[in-house]
Measured scan of single mutants.
Amino acid sequence: VTVDIKGMEYHFDNPEEAKKFAERMAKELGGELKVENGTLKVE
């Protein structure tokens, strides 16, 4: 699973970990979490 945090890509084997990480980063950065082509994106 790929997580894109404002252009920086992180790769996770575990989808649950990827989702938790993306949600935490969205909250910390005040960004919006989206799913695009199987990639979790925070913008």
Rank of each mutant, 00 (worst) to 15 (best):
V1W: 14
V1Q: 07
V1F: 13
V1A: 08
T2P: 02
T2R: 10
T2V: 13
T2F: 08
T2D: 03
T2I: 13
T2L: 11
T2Y: 08
T2H: 08
T2W: 11
V3G: 01
V3C: 07
V3A: 01
V3F: 00
V3P: 01
D4H: 15
D4F: 14
D4I: 15
D4W: 14
D4Q: 15
I5C: 13
I5V: 11
I5D: 00
I5E: 02
I5K: 01
I5F: 08
I5M: 03
K6Q: 14
K6H: 15
K6R: 12
K6C: 15
K6A: 15
K6W: 15
G7I: 02
G7D: 04
G7L: 01
G7T: 02
G7W: 02
G7A: 00
G7F: 04
G7E: 03
M8V: 14
M8R: 13
M8F: 12
M8A: 08
M8Q: 12
M8C: 13
E9P: 04
E9N: 08
E9V: 13
E9R: 14
E9Y: 13
E9F: 13
E9H: 13
Y10C: 14
Y10D: 02
Y10M: 06
Y10P: 04
Y10S: 03
Y10E: 02
Y10V: 07
Y10T: 05
H11I: 10
H11T: 09
H11K: 07
H11A: 05
H11D: 04
H11E: 06
H11W: 13
F12N: 00
F12Y: 01
F12S: 01
F12M: 00
F12D: 02
F12L: 00
F12I: 01
F12E: 01
F12H: 00
F12G: 01
D13P: 07
D13I: 07
D13H: 07
D13M: 07
D13A: 10
D13V: 07
D13E: 11
D13Y: 05
D13C: 14
N14D: 14
N14H: 07
N14K: 03
N14C: 12
N14Q: 04
N14S: 13
N14R: 03
N14W: 04
N14P: 00
N14Y: 05
N14M: 04
P15F: 15
P15Q: 10
P15E: 13
P15H: 12
P15K: 08
E16T: 10
E16W: 10
E16G: 07
E16R: 05
E16L: 08
E16A: 11
E16H: 09
E17G: 02
E17I: 04
E17W: 02
E17A: 09
E17T: 06
E17M: 06
E17Y: 03
A18Y: 03
A18W: 01
A18K: 01
A18I: 00
A18D: 02
K19V: 11
K19G: 05
K19P: 02
K19H: 13
K19D: 06
K19E: 10
K19W: 15
K19Y: 15
K20A: 13
K20C: 14
K20Y: 06
K20I: 12
K20S: 11
K20N: 12
F21A: 03
F21V: 02
F21Y: 04
F21C: 11
F21Q: 01
F21K: 00
A22S: 00
A22N: 02
A22F: 08
A22Q: 06
A22E: 06
A22C: 10
A22V: 06
A22L: 09
E23G: 00
E23A: 02
E23I: 03
R24N: 10
R24A: 13
R24P: 01
R24W: 09
M25F: 04
M25R: 02
M25I: 09
M25P: 00
M25S: 01
M25N: 01
M25W: 10
A26W: 06
A26S: 07
A26E: 02
A26M: 09
A26K: 04
A26I: 09
K27I: 12
K27P: 01
K27R: 13
K27A: 11
K27M: 11
K27Q: 11
K27F: 10
K27N: 09
E28M: 13
E28I: 14
E28D: 07
E28T: 09
E28N: 08
E28W: 12
L29G: 05
L29T: 07
L29M: 10
L29A: 05
L29I: 09
L29Y: 06
L29Q: 05
G30K: 10
G30N: 11
G30Q: 08
G30P: 03
G30L: 07
G30T: 05
G30R: 08
G30A: 07
G31R: 03
G31V: 10
G31M: 12
G31W: 12
E32T: 14
E32D: 10
E32N: 13
L33V: 15
L33P: 04
L33F: 05
L33S: 04
L33I: 14
L33K: 03
L33W: 05
L33M: 09
K34T: 11
K34F: 12
K34P: 04
K34R: 13
K34E: 06
K34Y: 11
K34Q: 08
V35M: 11
V35A: 08
V35Q: 09
V35N: 10
V35H: 08
E36G: 09
E36N: 09
E36F: 05
E36C: 13
N37M: 03
N37R: 03
N37K: 08
G38Q: 04
G38P: 05
G38A: 03
G38D: 09
G38W: 00
G38N: 09
T39M: 14
T39Y: 13
T39V: 15
T39D: 08
T39W: 11
T39K: 15
L40V: 09
L40I: 15
L40M: 09
L40R: 04
L40Q: 06
L40T: 06
L40P: 06
L40N: 06
K41M: 10
K41G: 06
K41W: 08
K41N: 06
V42E: 04
V42F: 02
V42I: 11
V42S: 05
V42G: 05
E43D: 11
E43A: 12
E43T: 14
